[in-house]
Amino acid sequence: MKSSRFDATVLTLGFAFLYIPIIILVIYSFNASKLVTVWGGFSLQWYRTMWSNQGLMDAAWITARVGVISATIGTVLGTLAALSLVRFTRFPGRMLFSGMIYAPLVMPEVITGLSMLLLFVAVGIDRGFWTVIIAHTTFTMCYVAIVVQSRLLTFDRSLEEAALDLGCPPVKTFFKITLPLIFPAVIAGWMLAFTLSLDDLVIASFTTGPGATTLPIKIYSQVRLGVTPEINAICTILIGLVTIGVIITSISTKQAEMRRIRDEHVAARGTT
């Protein structure tokens, strides 16, 4: 068919565009030569250099901690925000509230970063590790809220009603029924928040202080000086981690899907 050949071409070109730069970056991290355009043979020397670069390693450790802490707080706040949006149809300032959830998703980072910094200065908080966490929590919670909200919108309310009907009080119902069932979305939200936090350069640059240099800030300052294979190496490791994470998630969802299909076959046969 003509249109399917067109579609295949479009997708091939599109994905080539998306992936070739990343693949090149990964390949050149194993280049023995320091020059980008010259292939000097396979080598792991840049990984060794990277490993012994104390500044880079410190930044990585700080980034990981910022990511875990801000993603966790952001997930709790984002889940609460999603519940408020879906379950509370009317409360004072609901318009403002939903506005505050959606705006950070598109707000240029320079504005968010600058405004957040000015707040910290205005109230006299020393900038550093915790100010980055507050800033990251604030914008990642909105992403979590969107992810959890879309799950809650398809949530069958009668499950909660059934629990209430069977004598389970509301708060307990949330922890025994609602939370376990929306948990995959909460986890997805956490992972998204964590990645966004790892990724962020601009907001972190504004809100950080002495001793809290995150990895993107470190990479950025080196990138400005030019392309180095050492940066390629650390980028490759980050890409590798993310890819492994995504592959594990997709395999586990695939398995859950297979299990579901198998269950339905069992159910259809109606036998043990």
């Binding site: 069958d156 009668s158 499950l159 009603e161 059934a162 629990a163 029924i177 376990p180 069932l181």
Partner: peptide
């Protein structure tokens, strides 16, 4: 319940 509302987990 009409949908049975069985707890899937």
């Amino acid at each position: 319940f009409q949908s049975y509302a069985l707890f899937p987990h």
